[in-house]
Design a protein around this nucleic acid. Sequence first.
DNA 1: GGCAAAGTTGCACACCGTGCAAACAACGGG
DNA 2: CCCGTTGTTTGCACGGTGTGCAACTTTGCC
Lengths: 245, 245
Amino acid sequence: MLSTTENAGPLGRREQNKVDTRRAITDAAFDLARSVGPGAFTVDQIAARAGVSRRTFFNYFHSAEDALTVRTDGFLELALAVFGQLPQDEPLFDSIVRAFSETTRMEGLSQHGELFRMADSNPDLLRAQLHSWERAEALIVEALRRRLGPAASTLYLTALVGCVLSCTKAAMRDWAASTPESGDDSGTQLEARILASLTMLRNGFADPTTDPIADPTTDSTADIAADTTATAQGTSPVPSVTAGP
Amino acid sequence: MLSTTENAGPLGRREQNKVDTRRAITDAAFDLARSVGPGAFTVDQIAARAGVSRRTFFNYFHSAEDALTVRTDGFLELALAVFGQLPQDEPLFDSIVRAFSETTRMEGLSQHGELFRMADSNPDLLRAQLHSWERAEALIVEALRRRLGPAASTLYLTALVGCVLSCTKAAMRDWAASTPESGDDSGTQLEARILASLTMLRNGFADPTTDPIADPTTDSTADIAADTTATAQGTSPVPSVTAGP
DNA sequence: GGCAAAGTTGCACACCGTGCAAACAACGGG
DNA sequence: CCCGTTGTTTGCACGGTGTGCAACTTTGCC
């Protein structure tokens, strides 16, 4: 029963080979997309660069664009995993905010932003990414349903999750657009935007003039929320046109 | 030759022919999707049924699925058109609610719901629909920017529009799932869900236990909103949403 | 070693999406 | 009415896509 054949880690050779192949394909796809541009290369080229046959590529991915959504999938799976580990008695919105804030610590964040930017010029890649978000939405709805119990209406759940993801998406878009070349602090830049957009959501988008990015140093989301509300009630009703920091 | 619409309107023969051809293609695509199922037919079949050549099909649409997003596009364009015609001094959220409520009066609403349901079993169709929503989002952001002026931050705009569309999408999903065979009142059923989800959004999704579908008779969403806002601020009726110039 | 399960590869085939040029139909002036 | 212009349709060709199938190779296990 005790086989002395050395296994590198908990994964068997088969599992490890699959992981490696998958990784080789996604890396090859990303390198090609970066060098010649998204949509400007063929599946054959990806397969050749990854060192596998064309047929094998299609054993792993449905299309060339799907091989580029791995980072997006990872981003969203990470958020889901973090959310699942948070205490159940924590206020719901706090859990959500923390889960998505944590995603800014993921590996390959800059690549993720780069792919976000690529989608602007490539409809097929955009569709693949949208599909990735959509799949994540279904998973998160399931997780939320387990947490909130069967009493919560489906409409409430799907609308909430859709809004949370829309806010995160908007934050990522803004972040990707504003940091073409990401520095070391790009993670915190993204986190600030996620925090800001989710705070807007929590406030029901009451105040259009708030530009929370201008002051991303606040570490407590409750402070931001209270602050925004206070601003809305304290100052006179909203000079929307003349709002300046 | 294609259609019996002898409309000698402002359209010349060329324009009219194009409209007819486009219509013939979309109708053929929808009929096929309904009869044999989405994704179970080829472009050649669509072209044959529409009475045009395969090449002509591709002069109008990029793919078979794109020919099925016309209703989705129409739905969102209608919302945008309604929104553009509303008075600028109306509270923003009220305009949004009204714009999307109006869409329930569109023609071919039941077909729209049917296509929504088809997307569940067809990834490519789902992607095409998601892309349609995405395109609409960009247009609505533009319209909102014109209304709110350049002071509103891009993050605020994109997050808000994304959330509004997510809520509408959730409403449509719930509606499409709950009314497999649509009756005459399906429009009001959908409208109630849109109202409910957008009210949730306005309240920042504060109360997970609310099941607004159970009581869709609420005619004044402002009541709910004012209630929540008053709770948060404690005093004045607060035009926080009303960023009117 | 040797067998069975799992994974890879080449091949064939239908389908997709597009550039191109010829054919065709709608305008509009003479 | 004829004819040139312009815009649309169509057939054709060609490379790329996605998948079923039948070898073939690798891995796991006795």
